[in-house]
Design a protein around this nucleic acid. Structure first.
Lengths: 211, 211, 211, 211
DNA sequence: CATGAATGAGCGTTCATTCAT
DNA sequence: AATGAATGAACGCTCATTCAT
């Protein structure tokens, strides 16, 4: 029962070590990419940040480009899992839960998202592969949610595409300073309050409701 | 009385020529910066686009960095003038006029704004000098506008800062694909419709108003 | 009549200057390649030898590889022109003239040939493109010459291919130390004597002729 | 009396194992060196070919350079033994035996010779130490053989040095495609035929002998 | 004023070798 | 003894900038 499969254990321990190193490199790189941009960051910068020899990086990644791609893919996985969660949340009951979940997911690994946004802003390919394609299902889920509400007579008739984009925009606006790195991430409580504000505005607007 | 102006004329003609050239360089550079990013754009790229010798650029700008700064300053001036217009518009009557004006101003020289956003995203200095500082008066004007409406009993009580940011966010969302360069600029008519939509959502939300 | 086409003149002067520089770089590189081999020669080495900045090289050649190719092509042209000369020499009268011409052509730009041989020795592609293909017409001309002599009853029956190769080998042997760079190039007179020796052995061998 | 040998046996068995490994490494390296050249071959290439960890090589050789030297020395020993054989062959009776022996010796370990030639072509030191010095006795033996024949009235008067070099050249020409690796090694029979051809040409030339 | 040519600084990357296990 | 991991040194090459014309 004891000491079974020492080889296997060794194997996985090594693999874990490698994965840990890759993670450390990605984190360091993401921080630098977020701060200075991908091109302005040198492999020397990254190596120094992880406290490694420059050439050691190449034992874990094929090159600088691949580090970036790993970071972007990492975020893509996050978005993919996000979709799963949203779909599983069969009856979100209210917008608030949905928005809160979106915010939570986006605000984890903030720097990764900063990098993703920066790259998508100047690269057609990244925009397509890592943003448009990935977010499409999320947006569609959002749109169908809005359509449902409209059909149920809860929302007034509105183009669901524009509505979804504005909903997204409102909470992006709410978290932009965090994403940009000029404000610290909000606590769970603060985040929920933001979500409530966003949904409040989206639902009822600024105007006083009569009746 | 004779022969007095030729020198002056020559002078100003030269100056105009110089200014025209500087503009041409800035436009070319802005297009490339927007497309590939500042660092990925070489001075050779710029020179070829303006159809100049590479070293000729240095007769008009001290260096690549200065071209970027000229572009950013150019946009800053636009924002500054925007504030003047907003302040002059003593009673905008409705949000729509305000929002429409903002959109119009932002959508002129789209590429310049793409560059500005890209740089502000990865440079603390650019963010401070060309975005936060410049937009603060605009945001303040917006906030005081909202406060006024709230005080007048037209808006329900809400934190004007957050409201202003979300208002901004909503129309940024509306024009993001244009800014990003994946959709063409809207016509004046389309723009006004967008403005109406944005203000509609901000004012009344998605929910059906009762009473 | 005078001062006609200054632009054209300027053009060609610049072109000549460029061609001169390219030649200087090729010569320097060929010398180093011959001495240390292509891979052991750094672009810094070459630049220092031509007394240039390292990056200046790249104004004349796309890269290190292209310098090598230019050198190899240069030799290929020599071989091509050699063939023309041989074909034009309608009746060489004797082997000696043919062999002497071959020797002369091969011993010009000795270093270039050293480089060519070195590369062909370890690169299938270079061997094919720059040696086998180019020399084939020369060898064929040689073989048909031998066949003619055999048919005329002057040579005894022998496989002309092997004979041609051995003829080539004999004078390669004669000039190998020069090619290898351990002996200085022979004078025209010395060269002719070598040619006579080579043809002597090929024709009559070492044995004393009886009869 | 008992248990005395195990240690010794173990020792020699280990030594044999080490020697076997060294040989395997040398063979793998020689193959790669012959194919791509010494510098273009990485220690990783070699290690993979011998199916070893890269660092394990350093248990058998002090470094990449030392592997090359071992290969070159190996060939040098071959040449040394060649001289012994030639000297022992007190009366070779005919050239053919001599030439055949030379060919046989050179065509064993073809790749080793390819490496040797490649290195000698671009390294003064290798040329001196592993070629000129080693072959000098062989050439001298050849020259004295020729001198003997000349003195005996069998050969016509000729400078024996040039004659020896051309003799060498002729059979090098005969086996060059094999050495270069573009033709398979000849069978013993084919080899003898080549030797006969070579000696035939050297002895009697191409011309028809009269009388 | 315009420019072709030149260049230093620095980049991403490779590789023979060392070291800890 | 064997090896995966680490690394310094050096490579080929790019590019913003300068300079002579």
């Amino acid at each position: 029962m004891v000491d079974q499969s020492p080889l296997l254990k060794e194997q996985t321990r090594r693999e874990r070590r490698i994965e840990r190193q890759r993670k450390a490199i990605m984190d360091a790189a993401a921080g630098l990419f977020a701060q200075k941009g991908y091109l302005a960051t040198t492999t020397r910068d990254i190596a120094e940040t992880v406290d490694m020899g420059e050439s050691t990086l190449y034992g874990y990644f094929a090159g600088k480009k691949e580090i970036l791609q790993a970071i972007l893919s990492h975020q893509a996985e996050m978005v993919d899992s996000l979709l799963v969660h949203i779909v599983e949340m069969e009856d979100p009951q209210s917008f608030v839960n949905l928005v809160d979940l979106l915010m939570e997911k986006i605000l984890t690994r903030t720097v990764y998202n900063r990098v993703l946004i920066a790259e998508a802003w100047t690269s057609e390919d990244v925009l397509q592969e890592y943003v448009l394609t990935r977010w499409q299902p999320v947006m569609q889920r959002l749109e169908s949610f809005i359509s449902m509400k409209t059909a149920a007579g809860i929302f007034r008739p509105i183009e669901p595409g524009l509505a979804a984009r504005m909903l997204l925009a409102c909470f992006i606006a709410a978290i932009l300073p965090v994403l940009r790195g000029i404000e610290p991430p909000p606590s769970a409580q603060q985040r929920r309050m933001l979500a409530v504000s966003v949904v409040g505005i989206i639902s009822n607007g600024l105007s006083i409701q009569e009746g």
